[in-house]
């Protein structure tokens, strides 16, 4: 069943097109990866879907979420959608928390904005969410600068999945982490996706990240989709020259992965 259907989406900065009429569907519960190098328009497309574009960028086309066009939503509908149905995970984990609020306060504010729950219930939900991403509940009272990068990214994942959204848009969530933490965060995301059954729109410039977890792959170049299909067909028989060059550029240690199979933390490229 189609959850999100993007139809002929264009994003322009003045006269310059950044995204040139892309269309794709996200099915319920699937992991869709968008790959492409920096400047290929993948992040801008994701921002357009969440209505998070900078004021100088204009989006046209349609983004149908359960049949309703997000790009036409009013402010109130948008707030409800963002709170409960679509959530984001960012690359810059350091900047995604307000520095002078505790981690817990972010959860508190979020829950308060969308649900009628008692203070104790909110606290309990937040602590459960923190535990579900492998953090101690004590993190609730910590400030963002007291946490490591991986812990912060886990907290933001906990926050993103708190209300069990149908669609999680992850914009290079591991790009700023070291390889070991990145591998752990990726596996965590995959686990949580299995558990909650949410769809994942995963944006990355790194083919290694999609090998293991993605169901569908979209390859973008200069604002256009050059190739899309399920993971096996794109990875095994890349049709477009650009995809082939991307694959050639990604360090694939297939031999090493055979040797070190089952040991994720020591072989981060195996993902």
């Amino acid at each position: 069943m189609t959850l999100l259907s993007v139809q002929n989406l264009t994003v322009q900065a003045g006269e310059v097109p950044l995204v040139k009429g892309i269309s794709f569907d996200v099915q319920k519960g699937e992991w869709l990866a968008i790959i492409g190098q920096s400047g290929s328009g993948k992040s801008v497309s994701a921002s357009a879907i969440g209505r998070l574009l900078a004021p100088n960028l204009k989006a046209q086309g349609k983004a149908l979420y359960n049949g309703k066009d997000i790009l036409q939503f009013g402010a109130k509908e948008m707030r409800r959608l963002r709170g409960t149905s679509i959530s984001y995970i960012f690359q810059d984990y350091q900047g995604s928390f307000t520095s002078f609020h505790t981690i817990g306060r972010h959860f508190e504010e979020f829950l308060k904005a969308h649900f009628k729950l008692s203070k104790a219930q909110r606290r309990e939900m937040a602590e459960q969410a923190l535990e579900s991403v492998g953090l101690q509940p004590e993190m609730y009272t910590r400030y963002p600068f007291q946490l490591s990068g991986g812990q912060l990214q886990r907290s933001s994942i906990a926050l993103a999945l708190l209300t069990k959204p149908d669609l999680v848009i992850a914009d290079e969530p591991t790009a700023a982490l070291d390889s070991i933490s990145a591998a752990k965060v990726l596996r965590l995301l995959a686990d949580l996706q299995q558990k909650t059954g949410c769809a994942m729109l995963f944006i990355t410039h790194d083919l290694r990240h999609v090998r293991k977890h993605a169901d569908q792959i979209i390859v973008m170049k200069e604002g256009e989709i050059v190739e899309k299909g399920d993971k096996q067909s794109v990875l095994d028989q890349p049709q477009h020259a650009y995809t082939r060059s991307l694959m050639a550029a990604s360090p694939s240690l297939s031999a090493a992965s055979q040797l070190l199979k089952g040991d994720d933390t020591s072989c981060v490229y195996c993902n």
Binding site: G50, L52, R79, R80, R82, G83, T84, I86, S87, Y88, F90, D92, G95, S96, F97, T98, S99, H101, H106, E109, F110, A113, H114, S156, L159
Partner: peptide, 20 residues
Amino acid sequence: DYITMAKINGLSEWRIMWKH
């Protein structure tokens, strides 16, 4: 990003302006 994050979390503009 923390402001984008606050928007995504569906906080009201008022709250973002005065609390964040």
